[in-house]
Design a protein around this nucleic acid. Structure first.
Length: 609
RNA sequence: GCACUCGUAGCUCAGGUGGAUAGAGCGUUGGCCUCCGAAGCCAAAGGCCACUGGUUCAAGUCCAGUCGAGUGCACCA
């Protein structure tokens, strides 16, 4: 049990002795206030048993049993403040492994899901980075994670691109990235004044797509997309193709489940006569029109109906798709795909989620809520609660709506190229010798991609992002390079220590020599597990990104700390024996915290900067 | 019109279940490298936390309303 939990218990027991049962909040004392952790519990106690909060706090200070590692308690007005034993606390942080949340169960995370008809643009980056980071964070919190990528291979967009290739007689030169080449045909078709007359041809392609005849054409685009996503650091377990979802009968099986519900009906009169509709008013209050059409009068399905069947499948309400390996990711792990010629999932390996997270932009809020509500309509309220739409605001480009057709777009590949290029230029500027090293390109890659990923997830998902080069690829300030630099600096200290023959694992440390300033740093390091827990709770990686910044800021402040005469006071190498070893051990732990934290958001630390 | 999201420094954003003087970055001004690397640090300036009312010992945080911005509201996908 961590220190804060122990303090909470201690305070609540002391309150019990005074005759009050309270939920005591333990928080860090504000900077400049006495103590390390405090609680306003006296307010609550005063409320239940009467009396003056300040007096009650004073009483608590007398009676509370101090857990190990706390050396002093005192009342500060109505607040009760605890002082930790610096040496014991830092030693605990250094020696004990992080107590990460131990969640169980399986979460299916769907992200990317880009139309297979043109290259990814910078707006897609946000989706991929959000989903991939969530997957990493949930995995760290102990859950089984399955990342799925939905391939809409029967949609109009895919059809238009393939039609354009045939219609204009376009030939791929084998050099240009395939998805970029295909996208050019799409743009050309949509700029073609004759497009309305080409409609029959496009429809024919759509029918052939639905029949699965053009699968290999679409697979080529998907492979090209994966190149982009792999480069960004994203990894997938399974690609689900819309044609397979449809072909597996998920639509009918979903509708069969909904048929049994009291919330669905086949009206005989009114404007919905002849259709199959679902009343979602219980789950989506305040709607003007609570009836959602699932099956039209002519018997064809609405898109939402397909989505519902697919969501039901993710939760394991039925099975039936077939699977086979599709490709390997850079680490050699197999990425699977649904496929008509695949094998049945006898091991129930895919789907069967306890929680489903769909990373989809906020313009889909309404339809996603309908899908979620359908689980309630089907009577699966638990699944409805654990059906999460990770909704994020769409990305604009220099203030304009991204549109490939209008040419207002920057491809994800170009953005990554530019980011790495800028990183290399900056490297040559600040560290010329380093930029001549063989691994300069790898260093620039980690910095450039880190900068992009961080820019995409440092703010809450509800924030709109306007992609601007200077902002997204900035290398100073609230950025990945700032954090990476701190992590590299920590490694440099450790390297120097080892070169000088000192122990960096705590051997020979005299923990009691540590001053308060080192405690501040150690407290920041110790927060990581709570950060992971919070990130999981709110379903957002921005919590982790912000923490990474805090960690870097704390370390830099500690590193640069000076006394009144301007002399550095935390130089590890020059610290007295005993203190020196304690500090090396703390820096080693900090470095590890950097690695774990950045890994949670898919950012790699360069060997040097 | 209805629903959802948002309104915190000039700009871009943080501010777990309400708690002790509201924090960063960019930009502005002024300092700090005879170095465990300055992609860094310190300091200054900059805030009726959109507005009004309510709940509470305590509200940036919760509730209601107002104003403003964005998004979505087809038997489309």
């Amino acid at each position: 049990m961590d220190l804060k939990a122990q303090l909470k218990t201690a305070v609540e027991m002391a309150a019990q002795q005074l005759g009050a049962t309270v939920d005591a909040a333990i928080q860090e004392t504000p900077a400049g206030k006495a103590g390390d952790y405090g609680t306003p519990a006296a307010f609550l106690i005063a409320k239940t048993i009467g009396g003056n909060p300040a007096q009650i706090a004073a009483q608590l200070a007398q009676t509370v049993q101090l857990p190990q590692g706390i050396k002093k308690v005192e009342a500060a007005g109505p607040f009760l403040n605890f002082f930790v034993d610096v040496g014991a606390f830092v030693r605990g942080v250094v020696e004990k492994p992080f107590e990460m949340p131990q969640l169980s169960g399986k979460v299916v995370i769907e992200h990317t899901s880009v139309n297979p008809n043109k290259e990814l643009h910078v707006g897609h980056l946000r989706n991929v980075v959000l989903g991939d980071s969530m997957a990493r964070i949930f995995r760290a919190a102990g859950q089984t994670v399955e990342v799925q990528n939905y391939i809409d291979d029967t949609g109009r967009q895919a059809a238009e691109s393939i039609f354009a290739v045939n219609h204009y007689g376009l030939k791929w030169d084998g050099v240009q990235k395939y998805d970029h080449w295909l996208g050019e045909g799409y743009v050309r078709l949509n700029a073609d004044p004759a497009k309305p007359e080409l409609e029959p041809g496009i429809r024919e392609i759509m029918h052939r797509l639905e029949a699965g005849e053009l699968r290999s054409e679409v697979e080529k685009v998907v492979h090209a997309h994966l190149v982009t996503c792999f480069r960004l650091g994203a990894r997938y377990d399974l690609l689900n193709w819309e044609s397979d979802v449809v072909g597996s009968g998920f639509l009918k099986r979903g509708m069969d489940i909904l048929e049994a519900s009291n919330y669905t009906s086949h009206p005989n009169e009114g404007k919905y006569a002849g259709a199959f509709v679902m009343d979602v008013s219980e789950f989506m209050p305040g709607l003007e029109e609570p009836q959602v059409v699932l099956i039209r009068t002519d018997g064809t399905a609405m898109y939402a109906a397909k989505d519902i069947g697919y969501q039901f499948w993710k939760f394991g309400l039925f099975e039936g798709m077939k699977f086979r390996p599709f490709t390997e990711d850079p680490e050699g792990h197999t990425v699977w795909t649904s496929a008509p010629d695949g094998d049945p999932d006898l091991a129930r390996r895919f789907g069967h989620a306890d929680e489903v997270i769909n990373v989809i932009d906020s313009r889909q809020d309404h339809p996603q809520t309908v899908v979620r509500s359908s689980l309630g309509v089907a009577g699966h309220t638990g699944m409805k609660e654990r059906s999460i739409h990770l909704s994020y605001a769409f990305v604009t480009l220099e203030g304009q709506t991204i549109s490939g057709r209008k040419g207002v777009t920057v491809s994800a590949d170009a953005a990554m190229d530019e980011a790495q290029k800028r990183a290399l230029i900056e490297l040559a500027k600040v560290n010329p010798e380093l930029s001549q090293r063989d691994d300069a390109g790898e260093i620039a890659r980690r910095i450039g991609l880190g900068a992009i990923r961080f820019a995409m997830l440092k703010a809450e998902p509800t924030r709109k992002i306007d992609f601007r080069w200077e902002q997204a690829l900035a290398l100073n300030g609230d950025t990945a390079p700032y954090i990476q630099y701190a992590a590299v600096r920590a490694a440099n200290i450790l390297r120097k220590g080892q070169e000088a023959g000192f122990a960096i694992d705590g051997t020979g440390a005299d923990w009691d020599m540590l001053p308060d300033i080192d405690l501040t740093l150690a407290k920041q390091v110790a927060k990581l597990p709570q950060i992971v827990a919070q990130s999981v709770r709110v379903h957002s990686p921005h919590v982790v990104a912000q923490y990474a910044l805090d960690l870097a800021t704390s370390f830099n402040a500690w590193y640069n700390a000076k006394d009144k005469n301007g002399k550095r006071i935390t130089n590890v190498l020059e610290s007295e024996p005993g203190l020196r070893e304690a500090r090396f051990a703390l820096v080693a732990r900090l470095r590890q915290a950097f690695e774990e934290t950045l890994d949670l958001i898919g950012i790699e630390i360069p060997a040097a900067m």
